[in-house]
Amino acid sequence: MNNIQEKPDLTEVERIIAKYNGKDSWLVMILQDIQEAYNYLPEPTLELVAEKLNIPLSRVHSVATFYSSLSLQERGRHVIRVCDGTACHLKGFVNLRDEIERQTGLTEGQTTPDKRFSFEVVACLGACAIAPVMSVGNDYHGEMSAEKIKDVLSKYK
């Protein structure tokens, strides 16, 4: 382990908290915005949020770990989400998952060492009409097949 950890710049967090007037009822939105800015929730940001909103750190941690869209681990630049909802499951989710695992060398919840991709399996992306679906970052890719995956992933550096 590297002992000299780079301290993240927390001014962005202060700006986000100020945007919500430091109200604790906006905790989830604040955490979402922090994740948007830092790509994940670094520990110091949670500590700062607890301090600024004047709520216990244990509550911030509880909320941050409750939602699967919030991550306390550093994630890749592009998050691959493969849908395992009913429609996608029936139309070939397993093939997609296996192909992504082969292409990236990741299993569910992991991140590549070069921080290019993170891989998650989700319950439903809400686009059952174009099943099977996967998303990379904010882009949706519908009617997927194992053959198309290599092309799709090559677009994201």
């Binding site: 520990e43 949670l46 607890a50 216990p56 244990s58 509550r59 941690h61 770990t65």
Partner: peptide, 26 residues
């Protein structure tokens, strides 16, 4: 009024723990 511990995670992974799973300094 200390709130040194709370739940973490969701569903079958839910546990009671200290913030960030560190020593409970509170």
């Amino acid at each position: 009024g200390v709130s040194a511990i709370n739940f973490a995670n969701r569903g079958h992974k839910r546990i009671v723990t200290t913030p960030l799973h560190k020593k409970a300094d509170k």
